[in-house]
């Protein structure tokens, strides 16, 4: 069997899937209100009124799942905080990687400087997700409790909520492609289920991280 290194702690994987599954449910139920043509699809859940309630319940799980991941002293929480610190720290080497994004996306390859645990592209995706999540969560609760908010605040919450939802949906499509369909980067897919990724893949994509940290966790 190929050698593997440890990439994602249980806490990180939990937050990822909490966020991902909740987002899919929120997107599906949200589209029922956002797009009229999508409304009949809400019958899957028993109609638009049921799906609107599901949207609220899942929204709470979406918020809690995300917050809980960062709290505490466990390995997962420490790794979550590290992820946050890492991705907002966008340097030259990250930019150099992100510039090549288009080439790699369409199956080409161009050398890039050694990357840390999260490469430039992942950092951008993470930052967009953090911003989108903050925007959608805050605007969402404003819309939920609209009757106790000033009208102008509610009015602005609508375009922000829609923009974040649609933009994150577009991002999700690309994320699914890179994680599942892209012949090179989809080697990482196993990592988000088991925590372990192929050592060769880790070396090729995150050389700096591999040499500084991942190497020590290598297993057959």
């Amino acid at each position: 069997m190929a050698k593997e290194v440890y990439r994602f702690s249980a806490g990180e994987r939990f937050v990822h899937w909490c966020h991902g599954i909740a987002f899919l449910l929120l997107l599906f139920t949200g589209l029922g209100v956002l797009v009229i043509a999508f409304q009949p699809a809400m019958n899957i859940f028993g109609g638009i009124q049921v799906s609107r309630n599901i949207h609220r319940v899942v929204a709470v799980l979406f918020t809690l799942g995300m917050l809980v991941g960062f709290i505490g002293k466990g390995q997962g929480a420490r790794q979550m905080r590290r992820w946050f610190k890492d991705v907002v720290n966008f340097r030259k080497a990250d930019l150099a990687h992100a510039k090549n994004f288009g080439i790699e996306f369409f199956g080409g390859h161009k050398p890039f400087p050694p990357q840390g645990k999260f490469n430039g592209g992942e950092k951008l995706n993470s930052m967009f997700t953090i911003l989108g999540t903050l925007g959608i969560v805050i605007s969402g609760y404003i819309m939920w409790f609209a009757s106790s908010m000033p009208a102008v605040v509610v009015q602005w919450a609508y375009p922000i909520h829609a923009a974040c939802a649609l933009f994150m949906a577009a991002l999700l499509i690309a994320h699914l492609y890179l994680g599942v369909l892209h012949p090179d980067s989809n080697q990482a897919l196993k990592g988000i289920f088991t925590g372990w990724v192929p050592a060769k893949f880790a070396y090729e994509h995150y050389e700096k991280w591999y040499n500084e940290e991942a190497k020590e966790t290598i297993r057959e």
Partner: peptide, 12 residues
């Protein structure tokens, strides 16, 4: 936002 969002999803 609605048309741009649609374009973004389509482009993706």
């Amino acid at each position: 936002v609605h048309p741009l969002g649609g374009i973004a999803i389509g482009a993706s």
